[in-house]
Simulated assay, not measured.
Amino acid sequence: MSAGKLTYNYLSKNCGLKVSSICLGTMTFGESKGGGRPGQCDEALAHQILDRYVAWGGNFIDTANMYQEGQSETMIGTWLKKREDRDKLIIATKVRVSMDSSDPNCEGLSRKHIIWSVEESLRRLQTDYIDLYQIHAWDEGTPIKETFSALNDLVKSGKIRYVGVSNVTGWQLQKILDLQDRMGWEACVTVQNQYNLLCRETELEVVEVCKNEGLGMLPWSPLKGGWLSGKFKRDTAASGDTRVGWVSEKESSRRAQSHPSFQQYQDNEKVWNLIDKVESIGKAHEKSVAQVSLKWLLQKPTVTSVIIGAKNLQQLDDNLGAGTDWKLTDSEMNKCNDLTEPGVQYPYIDVKNRNKSRRREDAN
C-alpha cells in the first residue's frame, strides 16, 4: 500500500491542532443531479477511499454542504457511524451556497442561514461537532459582522471548534481578521483558496496575509483539475473519462477554475515545458508528476495541508505519496518557481523590489 506514513503539521501558527500533510477532499463523493461528471464515487467506494486514507495516517477530511447536494457529507456520516475514532479525525465543511432554491434565505452568510446549515451538516455527518467550519466564499449580501458574530457564537456553543475561510481576496481576509481582533471573537485559523503551479496569484496578497497573521493555507485544486497529474500530452486530446476531457466535450470555450478544458492550455508552451520539467524532477526522486506538484505546494510558506481528491484507490495512493517524508531540493523548487512566476504588475512588483532588504525572514 504505502511506502510510509503521512507527516503532520500544525493547522496554523495560531492553533495547536495537528493535521496530516494531505487532506482528503470529498467533492468526488456522490453524483450531482445533472450527472455525467466522470470519476464520481458511490458510497461503497467512498468508504473504501476513506478507510485507505486513514490507513496512511490521514486524519483531515474536507467536504462542503453543497457537494452533490449534501451527498458527500452524508457518505462521510455513514462512514463515521461505523467507526469508534471520531475524536481522532478532523472534519471540515463549508457554508454559503444555496441548498434550497425555493427559499431566498437559504443562501449566503446570514446568521439564519449559517445556524440552519450547521444543524443540517451535523445531521448529515452524524456527529456532535465540526472541527473546522469555513465560509465557502465572501458574501456581499451580508455584513461580515453578522457572519462572524454567528460563527463566534457557534464556537462558544461547542458545535464548531475552529473557523476558516475559503475563496477570499487579500483585502477581504484582512478585513475579517481585523474585525475579529477588534471584537475579541474567535479568529480564523485557515484559508482555503485555489493554489497550484498554474495558479500562483494567491501568493500576491492572500499568502502574504497568512504569513503576517499566522494563518494556515489549505490549497484546493492542487493539480489544477488534473492538468498537473502528468496524464495529458501535447499531441493527444484529453479523453472524455477525465475531468479535463469531459469539460472539453461539453463546452470547448469553458474556462472553469476547478475544471479547465484541454483547449485552455493546449497551445500554451509554458505549461507543457512546466510539465516536462516536473516529470524530469519526478524521475530523479522516483515520484510521479502529481507527487512533485503536490510536494512543491507542501514546501511553500504557510501551506499546512494540501487538499486532494480521488476517484479510485490507485489515484489516492499516488497522491498520498506526496505527503510522506521526502523533499524537493532548493534547486528543484526554484526551477518550478521560475517556470511559473506570475506576471506581477504594479503595485506588487514595486512593493516587492522596495522591500528586498527589509524582509524579516531574510534578516540576520
Rank of each mutant, 00 (worst) to 15 (best):
Q266F: 14
C188S: 10
K224W: 01
V206Q: 04
E279I: 04
K277W: 04
V191P: 00
Q299I: 10
G240E: 13
W227P: 01
A187I: 10
A237H: 09
L215A: 05
W296S: 03
Q263R: 10
S305L: 12
E249G: 08
E213W: 15
P219S: 02
V306G: 06
A238K: 07
A237L: 11
G226C: 02
T302Q: 07
T242F: 05
V289D: 00
V189K: 14
P219I: 08
S252D: 11
P301N: 06
G225N: 06
T236A: 10
T304L: 02
P260S: 07
S305W: 09
H259W: 01
S248M: 02
W246C: 14
N273Q: 14
L198Y: 01
V247A: 15
Q264M: 15
R234N: 07
G309L: 06
V303L: 12
L298I: 12
V247C: 00
E213T: 00
S288Y: 12
N196W: 12
V271A: 15
K300W: 09
F232T: 08
V244T: 03
A284W: 11
G226D: 06
V244F: 09
T236Y: 00
S221A: 15
N268A: 08
K233D: 13
A310R: 11
R243T: 08
Q192F: 06
N312C: 08
G230M: 07
C199M: 11
G309W: 06
F232W: 03
L297N: 02
E208S: 13
N312A: 00
A237E: 15
E201Q: 14
G240H: 12
K233Q: 15
T236I: 02
S252N: 01
I307Q: 01
L228R: 05
G282D: 00
Q291N: 00
L298F: 12
C210G: 05
G214E: 07
I275H: 09
D241K: 12
G230A: 05
W220R: 00
E205T: 04
S253T: 10
W272F: 15
V244K: 03
E279Y: 11
H285M: 08
T242I: 03
A310I: 11
L228S: 04
E208M: 14
L294K: 07
L294D: 03
K283D: 04
Q192M: 08
Q264R: 12
A187P: 03
L223W: 10
G230Q: 09
L197S: 09
F262K: 07
S253R: 08
R243Q: 11
P222D: 03
W296L: 07
R243M: 10
H259E: 06
Q266S: 14
N193R: 06
S258M: 14
W227E: 00
R200Y: 01
V303K: 07
S239F: 07
T190E: 02
I281F: 14
N273L: 14
P219W: 05
A237I: 13
E249Y: 02
N196V: 13
R200P: 03
A237P: 14
A310E: 11
P219N: 00
K233I: 09
K211C: 13
